[in-house]
Nucleic acid binder design. Structure first.
Length: 512
RNA sequence: GACCCUAUCAUCUAGUGGUUAGGAUACAACCCUCUCAAGGUUGGUACACGGGUUCAAAUCCCGUUAGGGUCGCCA
């Protein structure tokens, strides 16, 4: 039983998908349950429609929760609401229990009191926090409490920590191994002024009630584990097993840092949608980060779905956080796209364009067969399949020259790449047009180009050109490239014969 | 400042006392070739540093350094 527990801030972090994928795999691979809980106890950060963002983000990547919250914010599953703000009474009931047992107490300290406390602690270079003699409200008598309550002073509920900072405890982490930590002695807030619980308290209550057996979360939580275990003990419950993974990092001025919502556009999962990264590519990239042996498995099982990969939990790397590597993602994405059929690519590109490039979507819809034929160039020929398409965003520019509304760049721009002036280039086009026949097979087609090369004083093959470059104006490569530039406006393109086969006669002759 | 985690090629990593330290990405060269991509072949001063333990250390221990994380009525 695992879970993913994002906050509904309207922002889905790519690390959230990473975390969800890990938890989902752990649960489902072992026949367990994976659920989604919405942690909206911070009302300030809550955004309308955010559950939709969460739910859509997960399902888009094929991650489905057995229990949880749907995109409209409705809970499904046996353990009541999976939205924390709707569980207020539950937390309050358990908080009351702790209060009655003397394991919690009301605190009337306001922000200024705490600021002052922190300043004093800083000045005396003491450990900061609400503990020991700084925990002023801990020793309030019942009468004092009643008086303050009566006077209408705002209050929160604090946990009366039984810990001793001098003592140490052993934490068994599923991913990091044994960790020796001091006990927690901070009297942390469990119920805030608005009556909602803090993360720590909600974690204990929910993960117990919802039956979580394995809590897999980012390692920013490691230092809270002693507290969390105290909370479970205080409530009389068994703590779940914890596994803390290192969060995704980003290289910034030579230093690694957390992939940040504020500074890094790629932290937002929407970034990958806008660019049109195939969902499978991101999943495969993340699986590769989770278990490096994924790529070996992928090589051996090129046709299997990534979700069939048997992830091993104990092989999750235990090092500092990995840098998010776009080069690797791109390489994986090329492979993923190369494994798709032209029809599948067409559908994916169209879906992307409908949302992010409406004019292109229209073009795609109006030219379905044509576009599919273009996408099919050098596709599905096994290992040698064309692998240059990374993301859907790039498709429009890639195939722009296949459409009549495209304007070819000025031929003079190619003077550094080709040993001919624009007039000579046009002449080659005219010569080729005179002999071109769409019914020619590739050999015949190429022979005709060779004949033109010879006529214009170019070598008909690269070997003879290399043997005596001074006897020619250039090689067959130059002639082919002239045709390429005339037709596609670029010196680099997919197979020119196939391009000409797909293009309409009118369009082709207008270019030559 | 205190506490915790981590340290193998540029990047992600394999590695659990005996390996020519392996793979993938990136980069470079060559082959193939009408260009590009792909494919094939090959390549590069990677175990942070210093001490131990041991016949033997990337692997175990200690220290140093560096990076990351936490110390909120945010999660």
């Amino acid at each position: 039983m695992t879970r993913v527990a994002p906050s509904p801030t309207g922002f889905m972090h790519v690390g959230g998908i990473y975390a969800a994928l890990m938890s989902e795999r752990v649960a489902h691979q072992s026949g367990g349950v994976f659920y989604l809980r919405v942690e909206d106890t911070d009302q300030k950060r809550k955004v309308d429609g955010a559950t939709k963002v969460i739910s859509n983000s997960l399902s888009r990547y094929g991650i489905f929760a057995d229990e949880g919250v749907d995109e409209d914010g409705n809970s499904y599953g046996p353990y009541g609401s999976y939205t924390q703000s709707e569980r207020k009474e539950i937390y309050q009931a358990y908080a009351k229990k702790l209060l009655e047992e003397g394991q919690a107490y009301p605190c009337f300290c306001v922000a200024e009191d705490l600021d002052l406390m922190r300043k004093i602690q800083e000045k005396q270079s003491m450990r900061p926090g609400y503990y020991g003699r700084f925990a002023k409200c801990r020793t309030l008598s019942d009468d004092e409490i009643l008086a303050k309550l009566k006077a209408g002073e705002p209050w929160v509920l604090r946990f009366k920590s039984p810990g001793n900072n001098e003592k140490r405890m052993l934490i068994k982490d599923l991913l990091k191994g044994d960790i020796n930590m001091p006990e927690n002695d901070l009297d942390i807030v469990i119920l805030k002024g608005d009556g909602l619980p803090t993360y720590h308290f909600a974690h204990a209550v929910d993960d117990h009630l919802m039956g979580t057996t394995h809590v897999i979360r980012g390692d920013e939580w490691v230092s809270s584990v002693p507290l969390h275990i105290q909370l479970f003990v205080a409530l009389g419950w068994k703590a779940p097993k914890y596994g803390h993974y290192a969060t995704l990092q980003k290289l910034d001025n030579g230093n690694k840092r957390k992939l940040s919502k504020r500074h890094d556009p790629e932290a937002n999962i929407v970034y990958f949608w806008e660019k049109g990264y195939p969902e499978k590519a991101l999943i495969e990239y993340l699986l590769n980060l989770i278990n490096a042996s994924f790529e070996d498995w992928r090589n051996k099982n090129p046709d299997k779905d990534a979700f069939e990969y048997p992830m091993s939990f104990n092989k999750i790397s235990n090092t500092a956080g990995a840098l998010f590597d776009f080069q690797k993602l791109h390489s994986i994405s090329k492979e993923v796209v190369a494994r798709m059929t032209a029809d599948e690519v067409y559908v994916a590109v169209l879906n992307w364009a409908k949302e992010y490039n409406a004019p292109f979507a229209e073009k795609l819809q109006n030219n379905k067969d044509y576009v599919t034929a273009i996408l099919n160039i050098e596709r599905n020929i096994g290992k040698k399949s064309r692998k240059d398409l990374i993301k859907w965003e790039d498709v429009e520019a890639d195939m722009s020259y296949f459409f009549a509304d495209w304007v070819r760049p000025d031929l003079g721009e190619f003077k550094d790449e080709l040993p001919l002036n624009p007039d000579e280039m046009r002449q080659i086009g005219v010569d080729f047009k005179a002999v071109y026949n769409k019914n020619d097979d590739k050999d015949t087609w190429f022979k005709k180009i060779q004949e033109i090369a010879e006529k214009h004083g170019f070598a008909t093959d690269t070997k003879s050109y290399k043997a005596s470059p001074e006897s020619y104006k250039g090689s067959i490569i130059d002639v082919a490239n002239v045709l390429r530039v005339l037709v596609t406006g670029r010196t680099k393109s997919p197979d020119l014969y196939q391009i000409m086969q797909i293009m309409s006669d009118e369009l082709l002759s207008s270019r030559l």
